[in-house]
Design a protein around this nucleic acid. Structure first.
Lengths: 338, 338
DNA sequence: CCTTATTACGAAACCGGTTTCGTAAATAAA
DNA sequence: TTTATTTACGAAACCGGTTTCGTAATAAGG
């Protein structure tokens, strides 16, 4: 079947293309009767308007890009839901890109966004990203950008993040209060601002409470799944063992749990564990896992609302806003006082 | 800064637009020297080609749509990864749409796809969908479609699914073998083919082994999170209680676990539980949860490869393939023999 | 009845590329 | 040297809409 278009539709009704276009957009220039006839014929002939033709003329794609490191853990799943909920209300389309935590990927994806393909960009930067030039270039081209969760510090760009320093601080206090003498923080990147802030908060609490005999209580866990496992195993079975762990992501806490099970280390008696995570299974783990839970859906939702504020008022160049949403420490058995 | 385009670029170099276009696409019609000059100037002036202009002319969007019910549980996250891995290799863009398990949403989303916006559609249907007309309409417009995971039976459309009947059958046998006399299957929809096939397999095993005193061992759990919880609570504390449960999705198993914890029902002694799920935390739950794990990433990957086969050979109209990938029953403590 | 305003529509430019086709100049074959 | 090819490029149509502007017909005002 040949694809129906406006020209065909206009020919069918003996009117001009302009009239059809206006009728379909409900212009006041077209009489009610004509509109009705055109609408009917359009539906009868299964006409659908080609979105790219309009994009070309109006320089509006009705599309946003979401760039994220991975869609593996539940945080980004929830964030995507928050993003979609707004986009869909606005009639916008959502393109998803994954950087796989690689700077090079992120750079080329961001480059792609600078072409009229999208009207705005939501981005959570990769753990490798230390140079913001690709993002600044996008900004210079006047494309609205909003960071969510993982932002790049020091740029004049809107962001929606959690209270990372404070959460790190409070989680450390929580461990200390419940009896930990040697807590450590497991990070996934030494360059990721969000991790560093959590780690800084954590460190501050240790200093303030004069706790911890380990010189550097912030440990970077990187590499493959296997490498991380063996790194954690070495940590938990080494000479100077921690008695408390704050994991910065799901995966690290899971490694800790698996290794404790394997080596017979008892949680929370020998080791207390908490994690920055939105995982739903935390309450039914063995033992139930204390989480610092980020409002993932809200982060996505609010970031997207911010983005649309910028897209819609582009001409007035909205001031950038940096919104901080609080995470919640949910205490469960894994950090219970011994 | 004004947006750079081909016309500007051509003017800058005193060549025609056609020459610029051909040079950028590395046409043999353009000499090496000219190409070099054009490439250099393009990069110097930060030229990026407008994708929609090309789409319009070539009727190729280099974009696919992925329509899914939710992105909540880990299955779809993994599937998205599989999809992206192929799309990204092909230089394609991925639009994500969520139907939120609503037929009306799915219908309007599918309608959107029929406009040249995308070159192909990957879809996992909503649990409400019983009428395939919207999908058939898309097919009639000659847009390549592939079902993944949740397909609509009886259509002449490619699909990649798991061995649902067999998995249901084997999971029931597993429960029976380990001592269950009254197993039930918790479904989320009475219309979803995938659930029904699992349930059918389950039912077959019960009949074959002459097991189960409950008339209808397939229970539809629907409604809000709260409603499902109370439904399951009633089931587990009622007069005729099951001693084994196969949950068709993550959420149902989680409900079961929470209610067992709340009511003191012991897993696996009083109740054995298994779930169709890809959740990573299954081994560290309390107790470790037996799963029937679908190859989610592979389903996404292979479905996307099938889709591209159809996109690339559209003219020859590739025969539809229905690929069945096996799930794996991973035995853990939650179904251990008592 | 004449003038002005309004209504309803069409012609054509335009968005930013791609592609076909024509052609002058350079090169190769006869 | 003449003819046939090849090379390198430009003019213009085209993709499918949107929008500006012009205009004939009708309505309103004086």
């Amino acid at each position: 079947m040949k694809k129906m278009n406006m020209k065909e539709l206009a020919k069918e009704l003996n009117v001009s293309i302009a009239t059809v276009s206006k009728a379909l957009r409900d212009s006041h220039e077209i009489s009610g009767l004509t509109k009705k006839k055109i609408l009917e014929m359009a539906s009868k002939l299964n006409y659908t308007t080609n979105p790219y033709a309009g994009s070309l003329r109006n320089k509006k794609s009705k599309t946003i890009a979401v760039i994220l490191p991975e869609v593996a853990d539940s945080f980004f799943s929830l964030a995507i839901n928050g993003i979609q909920s707004v986009a869909e209300k606005k009639g916008y389309h959502v393109l998803i890109y994954l950087s796989h935590e690689k700077y090079s990927n992120e750079k080329s994806i961001v480059g792609e966004c600078n072409s009229g393909r999208v009207d705005g960009v939501l981005i959570s930067i990769s753990s490798e990203t230390t140079n913001p030039d690709h993002i600044l270039k996008l900004q210079k081209e006047n494309i609205p950008i909003v960071f969510f969760d993982r932002n790049f510090e020091g740029l004049n760009i809107s962001s929606v993040v959690t209270n990372d320093f404070e959460s790190g601080y409070l989680s450390a206090l929580h461990l200390i209060k419940n009896g930990c003498q040697n807590p450590v923080f497991l990070s996934i990147s030494s360059s990721l601002g969000i991790c560093n802030k959590r780690a800084e908060g954590f460190r501050s609490a240790l200093i303030e409470k004069k706790t911890g005999r380990i010189k550097n209580p912030v440990i970077i866990c990187s590499g493959t799944y296997q490498e991380i496992n063996s790194q954690i195993k070495k940590l938990l079975t080494g000479k100077i063992r921690p008695d408390g762990i704050i994991a910065s992501v799901d995966r690290l806490a899971m490694s800790v749990y698996l290794i404790c099970r394997e080596t017979g280390i008892s949680i929370p008696n020998e080791l207390k564990v908490a994690v920055f995570s939105t995982m739903e299974t935390a309450p039914i783990l063995n033992p139930p896992l204390t989480t610092i839970t980020q409002p993932a859906f809200e982060i996505g939702r609010i970031a997207t609302e911010l983005l649309f504020k910028k897209i819609e008022k582009k001409a007035f160049s909205v001031v950038d806003e940096n919104i901080i949403l609080p995470s919640f420490l949910i205490e469960r058995t894994s950090t219970a006082a011994s």
